[in-house]
Design a binder for these strands. Structure first.
Length: 241
DNA sequence: AAGTGCTGCAACCGCGTCATT
DNA sequence: AAATGACGCGGTTGCAGCACT
């Protein structure tokens, strides 16, 4: 007589210390993963997502709590400038910090700071849309593409869609070269050659009909960004590395 | 001391991606 | 190839605590 399984009412709101203990014990004995079954098996009336979040953000070993150091703050600012709201990537560079924590810290402390700074630094040009964090995030789920200036310096576009093919010297590029939008970097500082990156079939097939057109795949770019972030974050000199 | 507004943080929600069937 | 489920990410919300009046 198998009746339809009724979904138990899941608990919400703040976690109690005893719930933390149950989850911690459960994960330590059974390991991470299968979050959907954790609530059933552990007896916690919490959704899998909730359990996962609680573990990831608070119960996991090596979680660092408390004040952000000046160095961490600085790193967050630099990386946010490079990556936008990609909190998990940023948090990945801050040992013991979680994406949620970094995100909250940004929203409560750094965002204001940076906005104030930007207000002072920018003139009345209408770049509001490009500079808007939310727009950046929507447009920039993938990593930033690159662009070489005729003078030899290089730029990373932080706001456009990675999948677009860059056309050298196009109007679009020129119009988007603004502070906080394109980042100057010295390509010679890196062991990186832009030609190492895959040219996607559609681009290779001649979409733009231009040998300077690149379409970047997400992962290789992320891999590149990792090393770039390190170099950028620690001052490009490499003395810290 | 009480009321109100503000701030910071924990947690939830919706959506996208990936793996499996 | 399509459907399904699990997981991860970023945005948003709700609430507790603090500051101010």
């Amino acid at each position: 007589m198998e009746s339809k399984r009724v979904k138990p009412q899941l608990k919400k709101n703040l976690w109690k210390p005893e719930e933390d203990l149950i989850l911690k014990n459960y994960v330590e004995t059974h390991g991470e993963g299968n979050w959907a079954t954790v609530s059933e098996r552990s007896g916690l009336m919490r959704g899998g997502k909730s359990c996962r979040l609680r573990w990831k953000n608070y119960l996991r070993p090596n979680i660092k709590r408390g004040e952000m150091s000046k160095e961490e703050e600085d790193l967050i600012i630099r990386m946010h400038k490079l990556l936008g709201n990609r909190w998990s990537l940023i948090a990945g560079r801050l040992p013991g910090r979680t994406d949620n924590e970094v995100k909250n810290y940004w929203n409560t402390h750094l965002n204001k700071k940076c906005l104030l700074g930007k207000r002072k630094a920018t003139n009345s040009n209408n770049h509001e849309e490009e500079d808007n964090d939310e727009n950046m995030n929507k447009k920039n789920k993938l990593g930033p593409p690159f662009h070489s200036e005729p003078n030899g310096s290089s730029l990373i576009n932080l706001t456009s869609n990675t999948k677009l093919g860059l056309e050298e010297g196009s109007k679009k590029e020129e119009s988007t070269v603004t502070e906080g939008n394109w980042m100057d970097y010295d390509a010679s500082s890196f062991n990186y050659d832009i030609m190492d990156y895959p040219i996607m079939p559609e681009a290779a097939a001649g979409g733009a009909g231009n040998s300077a057109s690149f379409v970047f795949d997400d992962e290789p770019l992320i891999a590149y960004m990792d090393s770039f972030i390190l170099l950028e974050a620690f001052g490009c000199g490499g003395e810290e590395l």
